[in-house]
Simulated scan of single mutants.
Amino acid sequence: MSTGDDDRRPVAEQPGVEQPGVEQPTADEPGGEYEADAARADRAPRRISAANAVIAVLLGLLGFAVVVQLRSNATDPGLSAARPEDLVRILSDLDSRSDRLRQEIASLEASQRQLASGAQGRGAAVEEARRRADELGILAGTLPAQGRGLQLKFVAGGEAIAAGTLLDAVEELRGAGAEAMQIEGSGGRPVRIVASTYFTDAKGGGLIVDGTRLTGPYTVVVIGDPQTMHTALNIPGGVVDSVHQRGGNVIVQESDAVRVTALHEVSAPRFARPVS
């Protein structure tokens, strides 16, 4: 049985129910419905959309790549210690290679359009086949060639010019767009330089190039863009720099009329045969 004291007990407060005798906060007062909305928003689970996740991953990968690139450049002793003019030459060499590749792409696209031009396709195909055969003959060393290029003369100093030095020179020239090369010594016939050409140090001095013995000084004749090849040879730590450090010298002459006359003898295949 309830007593009078029991009737005076406060009723349990319920959310959203106004209690008699209790002043409820308004929207303009602290603790009003704005705080209630904020509390409900904090309690609501936050969802991360797939697009936000992808953007976050991409930003993380980009930041990682930037950090790796900066660390790589910072730890490269060659570039960090290079002089500004050396860096300019390196950049110029890279730009020249990029331009050369763009020109090659444009030439191939033009050939493709000619081959697909209907009635003119047959004539264009024959002309393209002849041009390609001439290019392959020059690259294989079976045809003579002429054009703009360089003439390099390697003069030994305190140390003899090693086979590895000339091989490095050939690789740098190829990387700079050389199309045809030959090498000759102080006597004997010149030797055509192709993909299979080898260089070894001969006993008693001199070099052996594809079985032919040569003695210094050595002259390399190369056809290609003179400025690009000249820039590549003068890169810090390159062939010209290494020869100078050994007391030798590399005399470079640019010319608009370079002739490569030495031919490479191609042996007949023993097992391979063309398939028609």
Rank of each mutant, 00 (worst) to 15 (best):
R9H: 14
F64E: 08
A140F: 08
Q227K: 13
A119M: 08
M229R: 04
F271C: 01
E23S: 06
L173H: 06
F64P: 00
E35G: 07
P190T: 07
G177M: 07
F64K: 01
R130M: 04
A268Q: 09
V155K: 09
R97D: 10
G177R: 05
A160C: 04
A82F: 03
E29G: 06
S267H: 11
T219P: 01
A176P: 06
L214S: 04
G206W: 01
V155S: 11
L101Q: 14
E23T: 13
A145K: 00
V222M: 03
T231P: 12
R259Q: 13
E265K: 11
D42Y: 00
Q253P: 10
A39L: 14
T231M: 05
A51I: 02
V252Y: 00
D256I: 02
V17D: 03
I208E: 15
E23H: 05
R132Q: 12
T261D: 14
G31R: 15
A39Q: 15
A65T: 06
A39N: 09
E29K: 07
A106S: 10
I183K: 03
A145P: 15
G137Q: 00
Q227A: 15
V239I: 05
G137S: 05
E18P: 14
E128A: 12
F154L: 12
L263F: 05
D7M: 08
Q245V: 06
G32C: 09
Q151H: 05
Q146E: 07
R100T: 10
A180G: 12
S242Y: 06
R148V: 04
S92E: 07
G141R: 00
V220W: 00
A268V: 12
A180R: 01
L59W: 06
R113E: 15
D76A: 02
T200C: 03
G188R: 06
A145L: 00
V266N: 02
A116S: 14
R192C: 04
I183E: 05
D134S: 12
V68Y: 03
V221E: 08
G164C: 03
E127S: 11
K203P: 15
D6E: 13
G206V: 00
H230W: 09
L70A: 08
P77N: 02
L58F: 13
Q120N: 14
A176E: 10
E33K: 08
T165P: 12
M181D: 02
S267F: 01
A129I: 07
V126Y: 14
A162L: 12
V54L: 14
G149P: 10
E265V: 07
E13S: 10
L166F: 02
R270A: 14
A257K: 13
A180K: 00
V240I: 11
G63H: 04
A82Y: 04
V67P: 08
T261G: 08
L167S: 14
E23P: 15
R89Y: 01
A163T: 03
R130C: 01
V11I: 13
A180W: 00
Q114H: 02
A129F: 15
V266G: 09
S255V: 01
G187D: 15
L263T: 07
E265L: 08
F271Y: 13
D37G: 06
L91T: 10
D134I: 11
S111A: 14
I235L: 07
V126G: 02
R270I: 09
V54N: 09
A160V: 07
G248F: 12
P84Q: 15
G188I: 04
G211T: 09
I183R: 11
R47F: 06
R174M: 02
P10Y: 00
H244R: 12
G158E: 09
L233F: 07
F154W: 03
E18K: 05
